[in-house]
Design a protein around this nucleic acid. Sequence first.
DNA 1: TCAAAAGTGTTCGCATTACACCCATGC
DNA 2: GCATGGGTGTAATGCGAACACTTTTGA
Lengths: 234, 234
Amino acid sequence: MTEIISDLYHVKDKLYAAADCIIFGFEGGRIKLLLFRRRVEPLKGEWSLIGSFVRLDEDVSEAAKRVLKEITGLENVFMEQLKAYGKADRDPGFRCLSIAQYALIRINEYDEELVEKHGAHWFNIDEIPDLVLDHNQMVADALKRLKQKARYQPIGFELLPEKFTIPQLQQLYEAIYQRDLDSRNFRKKLLSLNVLIKLDEKDKSSSKRGAFLYKFDDKNYQKLLESGYNFEIA
Amino acid sequence: MTEIISDLYHVKDKLYAAADCIIFGFEGGRIKLLLFRRRVEPLKGEWSLIGSFVRLDEDVSEAAKRVLKEITGLENVFMEQLKAYGKADRDPGFRCLSIAQYALIRINEYDEELVEKHGAHWFNIDEIPDLVLDHNQMVADALKRLKQKARYQPIGFELLPEKFTIPQLQQLYEAIYQRDLDSRNFRKKLLSLNVLIKLDEKDKSSSKRGAFLYKFDDKNYQKLLESGYNFEIA
DNA sequence: TCAAAAGTGTTCGCATTACACCCATGC
DNA sequence: GCATGGGTGTAATGCGAACACTTTTGA
């Protein structure tokens, strides 16, 4: 990427497009964001979202997937376009649109070595440092979208490991909505949707008694979606 | 614009960005879309959304406003970005991203002469012809967004004249949701929001008895929004 | 006088909310 | 045996959905 940029940096009569990824994770009851230190001038060394120029022969969504794979090793994760950022002066170097996309990843599955190699770090979403350009705005917009989206689609599952407990799931929704939920109502609602499969295992990592593990029932979820049902969790 | 395109058309190693506008109106109980015949090769003469290249020194949103003003004479209308369309092969001519934005306009206020001069026409949204490139997809996505958005924000008001009747407003929401609404419930709900100001005039264009005209109360609406209230009309 | 649209209240059922105690276990 | 988090049921409330008749007036 460095080569591309140094080639282009002084070309001011061209338009460029970047794919910037807002990568969310969830751990320890908190929503996290993966950031890294920008490796090119200007603003080298500043915290930044992870992104890349969109190549002329690749789809914008492909560019985002490519970046995500480069940094985390992950493929086939939930990713959706947030919006394009197109202020003429958003990048002081040259004219560059950014198409921001947000991804939800299972924080236990990513390739730690790869992430460290790229100088990336996970931040709690309420402790995000100043980022380059308009990246703080992108993060804020993505969080807003996440909240809104979570009301209607169980995207939260994308952030949990394959096997998870109900208290974990509740913590996740509490983190997304930024308010406490009643455990009885939450459990009742979730189980009534018939999209959870109870397993015979318990997770004892957070209590002596242990909590039953569940997994997500994709098949029933598909049925529910097709029936036009809207989730409205919490 | 023709000059710009003929200059650029054979330049295959550059990226371009277009701002395409999905312009909605409402008349006679039906939602309408403003389309025009593309005036440049390739696909000259085909129906198309109205758009323009984004100039290097202008914001993407400015480009959309510029186009809208050129065609309809209108400024300060509701306009929001839908999303960016970035498939590498979406435009057969050259690599061109499109940032689609949708606008809601009062169909009684636009400049008819200007619109005709540009060869534009209003279509009912259920009678949209085949459009160039991925424009049909954009329209479908915009309609989906409109439906979703209308549930939480009273954007419908943007499509009505300044003074409107409750039956008109109901027709509009019926057109957006594509289903009938109960007039008693609709009226009750709307009036309970306290964002309508009843006028002393009646509109007799659609009944002998006449229906009272209302206008929208921006001030109360702002208050409501600030209080975090969500509309959920219908 | 009649056709056509405007305007008006009440009831019912369901879904959300609020709320407090026992259970299992490791230390 | 006790501290810690996991798991459970019921009652009250509010909101959306369903539903039918009267009013006005131009033709």
